[in-house]
Design a protein around this nucleic acid. Structure first.
Length: 909
RNA sequence: GGGCGGUUAGCUCAGUUGGUUAGAGCGCCUGCUUCACACGCAGGAGGUCACAGGUUCGAGUCCUGUACCGCCCACCA
């Protein structure tokens, strides 16, 4: 054993070393040949953006995955955790664009090819940062499998997936209304639009009604209401509800579109609500999804009046070239001038903003690529309905169904340069499109060689949605794919439930259904799912429950906090606060507490090593497999260890990280340190040759229990446990790492409830004497004699463990007098015993009376409560026997205590 | 407009299928440099479980409603 531990634990002294060791020793590397063992545990890291820096959310996510993965590994399963990063289309492109801006350049000036090369260069320089941070935190991942979503093989798989979906008729291209970000100059999916309530205005505009000869009828107007007046430049009709009596006379009439002078029809459509606004809606099919639908129903043309940057285009007449909001102002001014502007009302509506850059998104007619999602969603719904994928907390299944059942086709094309380019080629001759795995030489339709590749790239989530199988070699049927798919678990935040989790389920169920299972048989939905369980965790907020964000400046950098408190302490804090369903308010105070916990473990080790050394000097060598002690405290701590191991295993099985953390914390600090270590000090006298065997046995149990406790703690606190575990073996450890040893499993034969109950009684006795001493103001170091009245059982137990009671209760001696000899003011009574100490200073009568009266009130309350129930026929008849008996016992005890307390009060007079 | 979650000690949170006197950490108060640890030890104070009804022998736990907080989804101009 290494004995020269520093007095206070300093995490920085050991963590870097072990983090590097775990990587360099390739301890967590896995190959599929090892996986002959059944049920490998496989988990995929949600790939962080390659541009990212680690934040507390990542750390929570990784802590949970690491605890679970280490736990499975220590249970003897083959555990594989696959790391990687995501190319993160928009985010990365934005970052490099910003860098270029700093140099006074734009990506357009660079050109596509050079720009993409520039992004690669950036990635090569900085792309590893976030995974390096992860290495520092000790994540037990298989680094040999690290992937990047734009890697050669993954890109090929993406292409294959696209082509197959296209062949299956599940990908189509067409002009529809999409969400357009004028800053990013690309289409984005519905999910990438965040809605915000905003106070705006609802403007009423009068459209002149045209008479039979195409001339405005004097004084005749149809008034529409709109929140986006500038889009009127693209109006092609005004719609009213067919049943709206106010407008029946206008059915079939034409209107004159103000400012543009265009003739547009009045159409009737049931979608229009007579209650809202004026009951008349201007129809702009190119700039609003509802209007687009109306346009389709009525065979109306679509007129786009804005360009990619949300400036008015040539279709907007004299407003051409104006920014959309400038145009809005002009349009309103001009309408006003012409007397066509009606009432203006305050109106709150929700506007969509780009998730990335927060620009106001413009719904806009645009030609894009879409996935026909319903067939994929159907399978994804079935997989969860049939229990092939289990959500924890189960609540999230509802959210998932809700979204999946109302899903819209997925716009997967992006007008970006950084990403997987869509494998489609446009024919310059016949205008048809050829979709192919390899660059085609001729148009599939007309054979022309005049082909140009589609410039759009795919939504980032398209490629990440394929990861659970592409990381294992799909579309090839590789041994890895056979062995490791489906993965077991996905751990992630709810914020990407739809973005990523739902897409993986859809794409996994779709593509993997076609891949035979290892024995060559047909795969069913149960084994096509990308993972069998999803654990969804909370958001990490700051101590004031605010969302961490750069703009608020309340972001806690995990690496900084880790350097301050140690990785283990931060991990333990996150785990202990990770109760399902609630966000985590990250608290430094709590982290401080867990740093203290690490220090506690460290010092327990110092204590143990010190005694091991003393023993060695006396010629006693500790045996990690040797016979242990038969003393009460030894049997008790062994029993506790096994009970706790059982509970911890159960808690982790339910992903109750908080519960598991609490259990190991209380076991180690409460049971092991506060009680067992204090008691065992009595047994470690190696100078007395008469006690050699019992001292050796006590030492064996001590070291064995500590070693087991380290294994129990290891998934939560891998660094300190690794350090101390190696120290226990003093360089002769039976494995390269504690992570490769066994997690403690409960041995039922070692759990002894009698021992645990007996020990609990003694603890109660000791604590009561301590409290009594305190009340009597007995100086800490002054031993006093005690008298105890109690049952035979506890009496014998106390006699048998006389030394223990005397030491821990700080009493010189105790006996069980037939007759009470002490002044009654110096006693204290509990359900199991009355104890008194011989000390001349009397309890302060006033304080004691107050305390006793409080107790009395407590007993009265119990008596009243139990009495009410015990006198109730219905209760006696219906309640289970166990409850009734318990209540009776409790009532009897309370009555006895009440009587004794009354006596004591009497004597105080 | 739909849907979901929360409200328990000063703070942050647990509380398993309803069952005997509701727990933890931090903070607070008191005493202790006890030879592993002051990042410690020992003792203690502190809660009518948001509110109002209901079901039940029995409710922090189940049901209904109310208030407040938070989140998600949504094509009403």
């Amino acid at each position: 054993m290494r004995h020269e531990l520093q007095k206070a634990y300093d995490p920085t002294a050991i963590e870097d070393r072990w983090a590097a060791y775990w990587v360099s020793e390739r301890l967590f590397h896995t190959d599929n040949a090892d996986a002959a063992r059944a049920n490998p545990f496989v988990i995929l890291l949600p790939p962080p953006n390659v541009t990212g820096r680690l934040h507390m959310g990542h750390m929570l996510n990784q802590t949970e995955m690491d605890i679970i993965t280490r736990w499975h590994r220590m249970r003897g399963e083959l555990a594989l955790w696959v790391p990687g990063t995501d190319h993160a289309g928009i985010a990365t492109q934005m970052m490099v664009e910003r860098q270029l801006e700093g140099e006074g350049k734009s990506r357009q000036q660079l050109g596509r090819e050079a720009f993409v090369e520039r992004v690669w260069e950036w990635k090569r320089h900085y792309g590893g940062a976030i995974l390096d941070q992860m290495k520092r935190l000790g994540a037990s991942v298989d680094w040999s499998r690290e992937y990047f979503t734009m890697d050669e093989n993954l890109s090929r798989a993406v292409k294959e997936a696209f082509v197959r979906l296209h062949e299956q008729g599940l990908i189509y291209r067409g002009a529809y209304i999409v969400n357009w970000c004028p800053r990013c100059q690309t289409a984005i999916s519905d999910l990438e639009v965040v809605h915000e309530e905003q106070k705006g205005k609802l403007w009423e505009i009068r459209y002149p009604v045209l008479g039979a000869h195409g001339k405005p009828e004097p004084g005749q107007y149809l008034t529409v209401a709109t929140t986006r007046p500038e889009t009127m430049l693209g109006d092609v009709a005004v719609a009213v509800n067919p049943d709206d009596e106010r407008y029946k006379h206008l059915h079939g009439k034409k209107l004159l579109l103000p400012l543009m002078g265009r003739e547009i029809p009045v159409v009737t459509d049931a979608w229009v609500s007579a209650d809202f606004g004026t009951g008349a809606v201007k129809v702009t099919p190119a700039h609003d999804p509802n209007d687009f639908a109306i346009g389709q129903r009525h065979g109306l043309p679509s007129i786009s009046v804005m360009d990619d940057t949300a400036h008015i285009n040539a279709e907007g007449g004299k407003y051409a070239g104006l920014d959309r909001y400038v145009a809005r102002k002009r349009v309103l001014e001009d309408l006003e001038a012409q007397g066509l502007l009606g009432t203006v009302r305050e109106h709150t509506n929700s506007i969509g903003k780009c998730d990335r850059c927060k620009s106001v998104v413009e719904p806009r007619l645009s030609t894009q690529w879409f996935v026909k999602i319903q067939p994929l969603a159907d399978k994804a719904i079935a997989a969860v309905e049939q229990g092939y994928i289990k959500f924890t907390p189960a609540q999230y299944a509802k959210t998932y169904f809700e979204w999946m059942r109302n899903i819209h086709d997925w716009c997967i094309s992006r007008q970006l340069w950084w990403g997987h380019r869509i494998p489609a080629w446009h024919c310059g001759k016949c205008r048809e499109i050829t979709v192919a795995r390899e660059t085609p030489t001729a148009c599939a339709c007309c054979g022309s060689a005049n082909l140009t590749q589609e410039t759009d790239v795919l939504d980032t989530w398209f490629s990440s949605g394929l990861l659970p199988f592409t990381v294992f070699g799909w579309p090839e049927r590789t041994p890895d794919l056979d062995t490791f798919y489906p993965t077991q678990l996905l751990v992630t935040g709810f914020d990407i439930l739809f973005f990523w989790v739902a897409r993986m389920i859809m794409l996994g169920c779709h593509f993997m259904l076609d891949v035979p299972i290892p024995d060559g048989g047909e795969r069913d939905l149960k084994d096509a799912v990308p993972f069998r369980e999803v654990y969804i965790h909370a958001l990490v907020r700051d101590a004031d429950r605010q969302k961490m964000s750069k703009t608020k400046g309340n972001v806690i950098d995990p690496i900084e906090i880790v350097q301050k408190y140690g990785t283990d302490a931060v991990r333990f804090t996150l785990a202990s606060m990770a109760s399902p369903g609630t966000d985590i308010a990250f608290s430094e105070a709590r982290t401080e507490g867990h740093r203290a916990f690490a220090n506690k473990i460290w010092n327990a080790a110092r204590f143990i090593f010190m005694h091991v050394e003393k023993a060695r000097e006396a010629g006693i060598v500790v045996e990690l497999t040797g016979a242990g002690s038969k003393e009460l405290e030894a049997r008790w701590i062994t029993s506790r260890l096994n009970s706790v191991a059982d509970e911890v295993n159960a808690a982790l099985g339910d992903y109750r990280f908080d519960e598991a953390a609490r259990l190991v914390y209380q076991f180690f600090w409460g049971d092991f340190c506060d009680w067992y270590l204090e008691i065992v000090k009595l047994r470690l006298d190696f100078s007395d040759s008469a006690n050699r065997d019992s001292s050796r046995a006590a030492l064996n149990t001590l070291v064995q229990t500590f070693e087991a406790a380290l294994r129990l703690l290891s998934p939560f606190m891998p660094f300190i446990t690794e350090e101390l575990w190696h120290a226990v073996y003093d360089g002769n450890a039976p494995a390269k790492s504690i992570a490769l040893t066994k997690f403690p499993q409960a041995d039922a034969a070692q759990i002894n409830t009698d021992i645990e109950a007996g020990m609990a009684s003694l603890q109660d006795l000791i604590a009561t004497i301590r409290a009594l001493r305190k009340d009597l103001d007995v100086p800490e170091r002054e031993p006093v004699a005690a008298e105890i009245q109690t049952s035979n059982g506890l009496r014998q137990l106390a006699m048998a463990n006389r030394e223990m009671v005397e030491k821990l209760a700080r009493i010189s001696d105790f006996h069980f007098p037939g007759e009470w000899r002490l002044n009654s003011g110096n006693t204290r009574t509990t359900a199991n015993f009355t104890v008194g100490v011989a000390y001349e200073k009397q309890i302060d009568v006033g304080t004691e009376r107050e305390r006793l009266q409080k107790k009395l009130a407590e007993y009265d309350k119990v008596l009243a409560n139990s009495g009410r129930q015990l006198n109730n026929e219905a209760f006696l008849k219906k309640a289970p026997e166990k409850i009734v008996d318990g209540l009776k016992k409790q009532a009897a005890e309370a009555a006895q205590l009440r009587k004794e307390t009354l006596d004591a009060l009497e004597k105080l007079r």
